[in-house]
Simulated scan of single mutants.
Amino acid sequence: MLGPPIRRAARRRPVDGLGLPLSTHAEAASAYRNGLDRVLKVRAGAEDAFARAVALDPGFALGHAALALLGHECGAAVDVPRTLADAQRCARERADERERSFAEVITRRVQSAVGHRALIRHLDTHPADALALAAGATGKSGDGGDHMPPASTSTSTSTPNASARPGGDTAGYGDHVGKPGENK
């Protein structure tokens, strides 16, 4: 008499910091999450973390795409064309739809003037993709022009409304704005 079929436990894929699945193993996913966290917090070390992720898993498309993004948009010391080629190859071999889409977005941002359109389409489909959201905030559109100065080049140390004075026409931080006609 045969017993019930033996079922293998389904392996859960590791996830990024927002719970999106990653096509890699746990150790490379941990390095990727570290890099993503550093990008989102604008901290040094993201390049090293993403490089560690792809060293641990050379077939990790999202890790390669993240490195290419940092090389192209942040000036990281990365061979962008080679890293993009690795991202595309790995995306074809082993990636889910979101990861393939992100690799394509980065390729378009590097190679064409319509990269911003690909990013918008990607975010329409994958609005929780934190790295794609960060890519949209870098200020580069893929046309070679900066459309927003990087935060690190700011020479101002004041708050956005530092010139606002209590009782003035512009509300500053902590000022009471109130309803029209109400005394300030």
Rank of each mutant, 00 (worst) to 15 (best):
A130L: 11
G115P: 02
A95Q: 03
A135L: 13
C90M: 05
G142C: 05
R121S: 10
A87D: 01
A132S: 10
D124V: 09
R108K: 14
E97H: 14
C90K: 03
Q111G: 14
R108L: 09
L131V: 15
V110H: 11
E104M: 08
A118P: 10
R100W: 07
R117C: 06
D129M: 00
R82G: 13
E93Q: 15
V110S: 08
I120G: 11
T83H: 11
K140H: 11
P127M: 04
R100I: 04
A118M: 04
R100P: 04
V110M: 05
H126W: 15
S112K: 04
R82S: 14
R94M: 08
R82W: 09
G145Q: 12
R117F: 12
G144Y: 14
Q111C: 05
R98D: 03
K140F: 14
A135W: 03
T138F: 10
H126V: 01
G115H: 04
F102Y: 07
R94I: 04
G136H: 01
G142S: 07
Q88F: 10
R98F: 06
A118C: 04
A85Y: 08
T125D: 10
A103N: 02
D96V: 09
I120Q: 15
H126G: 01
R109N: 06
Q111Y: 11
S141Y: 12
G136V: 02
A95I: 04
R98E: 14
A135K: 00
R108W: 06
V114K: 12
F102M: 01
R109W: 07
E104P: 03
A118G: 08
E99M: 08
A87H: 07
C90I: 06
T83A: 14
R98K: 07
V105Y: 00
R89P: 06
D124K: 06
H122S: 00
E93K: 07
V110D: 03
V114N: 10
E97I: 07
H116K: 11
V114E: 15
L119M: 09
D96M: 03
S101Y: 02
R100E: 11
T125F: 03
A91W: 01
D124N: 15
T138E: 12
R109Y: 08
L131Y: 05
L84F: 12
F102H: 00
P127D: 07
L84G: 04
A137E: 15
A132I: 02
T83W: 10
F102P: 00
R89A: 12
Q88R: 15
S141D: 10
R100M: 12
R92L: 13
I120K: 15
D143M: 08
R108F: 02
D124T: 09
R92T: 10
I106W: 04
R109C: 09
D86H: 11
E99D: 11
V110G: 02
D143F: 03
V105E: 00
T107N: 13
D129L: 02
R109A: 05
A134D: 09
G142H: 01
R82F: 09
L123T: 01
A95V: 04
I106R: 00
D124Y: 06
D124F: 02
V114M: 13
S112F: 03
R82P: 08
L84Y: 06
G115F: 05
Q111E: 14
G136N: 01
R109P: 00
T125E: 14
D124H: 07
G142M: 03
A91P: 01
R89K: 15
D143Q: 05
